[in-house]
Design a protein around this nucleic acid. Sequence first.
DNA 1: AAAATATGTCAATATGGCTGACTTAAAAAT
DNA 2: ATTTTTAAGTCAGCCATATTGACATATTTT
Lengths: 179, 179
Amino acid sequence: MADLKMQSVSEDFKEEELRQIIEMLFFAYRDFTKEPDKMLEEIGLGRAHHRTVYFIGRNPGITVTGLLDILKIRKQSLSRVLNQLISEAYVFQKIAADDRRKKLLFLTDKGLVLEQRLTANQRKRIANACLGKNEHAINGFKDILTAIINDIDQWRFSSPSTNSHFNDRTSTHENRGVE
Amino acid sequence: MADLKMQSVSEDFKEEELRQIIEMLFFAYRDFTKEPDKMLEEIGLGRAHHRTVYFIGRNPGITVTGLLDILKIRKQSLSRVLNQLISEAYVFQKIAADDRRKKLLFLTDKGLVLEQRLTANQRKRIANACLGKNEHAINGFKDILTAIINDIDQWRFSSPSTNSHFNDRTSTHENRGVE
DNA sequence: AAAATATGTCAATATGGCTGACTTAAAAAT
DNA sequence: ATTTTTAAGTCAGCCATATTGACATATTTT
């Protein structure tokens, strides 16, 4: 009990600095999601719909499994959200030509409009935060933020050309909910 | 509809780069909270308890109102969490000497142990992410992360000596849930 | 004495996760 | 050709965390 303060996990960084970063992450994420949440609420959707619409927009033709692998939630959780997005015509499905079990997901025009509205807000916030910062600072930001992510998902940012993994089951890892 | 892609909020940053950062924030925050969540689950607590314990540990003697101001949630939401933390002896209250309406919050030894366990995990993750990065990168990371936070809460990081605002009602703003 | 403040509580509602169990259809493996 | 695996979907229930509105109590301020 007495020596708890002295665990000093990684000797190179002071506890105070690390705690500041912990708090920054909390406040930043809270504020980052606040305005989109408000917009969504007005049309009867929630943050889960935002994430779904975002990643479908980002990866047109992604499969349900691919989406689950990004979001790291259960299909039952996604299902509620996805069904609502489909029934309200933000998203549509198309059976894959090569494998008729797969249903590829796409945004409708309505979905695109919503995605743009939401993402425009977050882009603006990030862009404003980066304003006046030099390349070193921005790269430092991106590097450290990426390094906070579990190894298993870092490939999404390391190689800008290798980003067609999302529906490649051989590259995904079946330990969702296990680890 | 056709010109949606060209809104280009802030001309200085490319949409692709901004989207990458949006995604990094999502993945980083998801993974940042995952392991503490797991630890908490084992003892019947949740992320809300973590936040509460964290900020009481960080600001010993903080009032309920001060905590609400940090967390930006309703007192009814905090109440459940706080009552559980008190009844399970992670937190105790002390009536303020100067104003007997105020109840100052402190961690018990048990609460301190929990807070240390949870925070050690997150500190380690941040420290590892910062390993090998130079001061410029780390400062860039902190600067931009701070700039993402709404102005109203940026004082928490700008002036390292001015941090006794948490129980000062004159510095808080009564627009929770309004804005 | 009245108003504002700090805290607490009851009740109802919404969201977004979770687990378990089970189905259907299609593809892959034996 | 049969079996197994994969992809997707569904039903039902549970839990955690947030919300709103309406009050209640004690204390301090005006």
